[in-house]
Amino acid sequence: MTLEPTGPDAATAPGEVIARREGMFGVHGTGDTSGYGGLSTHVELPGASTPPYGGWMDEVATALQAAAAAAGVESAVEKVVVYRGEITFFIRREDIAAVAKLLRDDVLLRFELCSGVSGVHYPDDAGRELHAVYHLLSMTHNRRIRLEVTIPDADPHVDSVCATYPTADWHERETFDFFGIIFDGHPALTRIQMPDDWPGHPQRKDYPLGGIPVEYKGATVPPPDERRSYN
């Protein structure tokens, strides 16, 4: 048994611009003598796809839509992105717990295993700074999907999926620890990796790497996040 093949990436809408990058070497102001300081590029994530998505993805999307409608959360799926053979469902923030339950229990979906929850921080994407990303696996149908929830930094709350997937317990604690996303309904949302009294959420983009300069004979090398860089 292998993963069923999917078609080529489905037709996609123009990408979604989430940030702008300026300059080239991470140098700003008068320190820039390279002449590249005026460069400006967009950071563009893959845009929403339109059906058909190809292969089994259509079955999952249709079944999810039907199940969501039956459960009264028909507008739960904000958009669907198919990129490089992987499908991502963007789920409305308030519906994630309900959708997770549908995905696990619906006979056409049967995503029994939650591989984990992780966070991504896009500081420049106003109102959608924090993303919680869930990877689900259906062992019955041998399919993988990804759920993504966008959360505003000003109100970093999202419902926990622990009731459906107990395995998300530590994953959500870790995401809280690193990104400050508060999972409502989690049995004990405390820090897991960092000490309990640690200030801040270290894997957010606005949290510095926290390295110290390294001293050599006659030279000091700054930590990696303060060095010149190429992006």
């Binding site: 960092m194 270290p202 510095p208 790497l209 926290g210 390295g211 110290i212 930590p223």
Partner: peptide, 12 residues
């Protein structure tokens, strides 16, 4: 010396 992990988590 902290080695390659020059970051917030590791004692240097």
């Amino acid at each position: 010396s902290g080695g390659m992990f020059n970051n917030y988590a590791v004692v240097q």
